[in-house]
C-alpha cells in the first residue's frame, strides 16, 4: 500500500465527481433558473423535455461525492456539513422540490403552474446555496481540534452571497447555451439573445471575486504570484473561453457556446482548486489530514473503480439516445 497514495487517488475521484456534477447538474439547474423567464408555456415544455431524460443521472454524482467524502475524507464531511448546516438543508429542499416537479409536471394539467414554481424555485435555491458553499470554501472554516467551532451563519456573508449569485449566473449561462444547442426557432433565438447578458453577469462576478479573494484569504495572493507560473494557464483558458462564447453566440453557432461554457467552468474549477490546494478544509487541514484509514479507502476503492465505468457508459448512452433537437409538441406531454 506504500506504493500508492490512496488519499491522492481518492482526491482525484472526488474532484472528478464534483466537476462532473457541476457541469452536468449545472446545465439542468440552469434550465430551471431560466424557467420563469421563458417566452411561453411551449418553450417551458421544450426546456424541461431537453433535460428530463438525464437530470437524475446527473445528480448521482452529488450523492457519490457525498458518501465518497464520508468514506475517504471523513473530516471534510464532519466539518463542512455542520458548518453549512442550514445551507445544506436549503439545498436539499431545493433539489427535492425540483426533482418531484420534474416527475409530476408532465402528469399534471390544472396544477401545472404549481409545479412550474416548484421547479424554478427549487433550482434557484439549490444553485444559489451551492455557490454560497464555494464562497465559504474560499473563506475557510473556523475549527477547534477536529470539530467545527464557528457559528450557524458563518457561511452566509457578503462575500459568499456574491459567489452564490455568481454560480446562479454561471448555471443560468450553462442552461442557456445548452438550450441554444438543443432548441430551434424562437426558443433558440431567445436563448441566443440572453446568453451575452448572462456571460456579462458571470464575468462581473469573476472580477469582483478575484479582487476580493486576497482580502478574504491572504494565502491566495502568494499562491498566485509565487513560483508556479504555469498555473496562469487556467485563468487564461477561462478568459479565452469567455471570448469564444461571445463570438460564437454572436455568430449564432449551435454547439460551440455550450462547449466553451463548459471549458470556462472547468478552467475556473481548477483555478479554485489551486487557490486552496492541498487544503480540503481551509485553512487548517490538508487532504492527508482529513483522510480515513488506508484499509477503508482501499476497501471502497475496489467497488468505486468497478462501478464508475458503468455509470459513464450508461450516462453516455442516455445522452446518445436523446441527442438532437427537442421540438415543440414532442416529448411526453400530449
Amino acid at each position: 500500500m506504500e506504493h500508492f497514495d490512496l488519499s491522492m487517488i481518492w482526491a482525484v475521484i472526488i474532484a472528478f465527481a464534483v466537476i462532473m456534477y457541476v457541469l452536468m447538474d449545472g446545465f439542468d439547474l440552469g434550465v430551471g433558473i431560466l424557467f420563469p423567464f421563458a417566452p411561453d408555456e411551449d418553450a417551458r415544455d421544450v426546456m424541461m423535455n431537453s433535460v428530463a431524460p438525464i437530470w437524475d443521472g446527473n445528480e448521482t454524482w452529488l450523492v457519490l461525492g457525498g458518501v465518497g467524502l464520508l468514506a475517504a475524507f471523513p473530516l471534510v464531511y464532519t466539518v463542512l456539513l455542520p458548518a453549512l448546516y442550514i445551507g445544506v438543508f436549503l439545498m436539499l429542499a431545493g433539489l427535492i422540490f425540483r426533482g418531484v416537479a420534474f416527475e409530476f409536471r408532465f402528469k399534471a394539467k390544472s396544477s401545472r403552474y404549481l409545479w412550474n414554481w416548484a421547479f424554478a424555485g427549487g433550482s434557484i435555491l439549490a444553485s444559489f446555496t451551492q455557490g454560497v458553499v464555494v464562497g465559504s470554501y474560499i473563506q475557510g472554516y473556523h475549527t477547534e481540534g477536529l470539530v467545527y467551532a464557528g457559528g450557524p451563519f458563518d457561511w452566509f456573508t457578503p462575500f459568499t452571497v456574491v459567489t452564490g449569485l455568481g454560480l446562479l449566473a454561471g448555471y443560468a449561462l450553462l442552461g442557456c447555451t445548452w438550450l441554444i444547442m438543443k432548441s430551434e426557432g424562437y426558443i433558440q433565438e431567445w436563448a441566443h439573445n440572453l446568453a451575452p447578458w448572462l456571460l456579462g453577469a458571470v464575468l462581473l462576478v469573476f472580477v469582483v471575486i478575484s479582487i476580493w479573494t486576497p482580502s478574504v484569504d491572504p494565502a491566495a495572493y502568494e499562491r498566485w504570484f509565487g513560483d508556479v507560473r504555469w498555473i496562469w494557464i487556467f485563468p487564461l483558458l477561462a478568459a479565452f473561453s469567455a471570448i469564444q462564447i461571445f463570438r460564437t453566440v454572436y455568430k449564432r453557432k449551435q454547439v460551440q457556446p455550450f462547449l466553451f461554457t463548459m471549458l470556462m467552468f472547468a478552467a475556473t474549477y481548477f483555478s479554485l482548486l489551486w487557490t486552496r490546494w492541498p487544503y480540503v478544509i481551509p485553512p487548517n487541514f490538508t487532504l492527508w489530514d482529513a483522510a480515513s484509514a488506508p484499509e477503508s479507502q482501499l476497501f471502497l476503492l475496489l467497488g468505486i473503480l468497478f462501478v464508475i465505468p458503468f455509470i459513464l457508459v450508461y450516462t453516455a448512452w442516455a445522452y446518445w439516445v436523446f441527442r438532437g433537437k427537442v421540438r415543440v409538441g414532442e416529448g411526453y406531454h400530449h
Binding site: V67, L70, A72, T78, S292, E295, S296
Partner: peptide, 14 residues
C-alpha cells in the same frame, strides 16, 4: 460520523 467513518463510510457508500 468522524469516529465511525472507517466502517460506516465504506458500507454506506457500497
Amino acid at each position: 460520523s468522524y469516529a465511525a467513518a472507517n466502517f460506516i463510510g465504506p458500507t454506506l457508500s457500497y
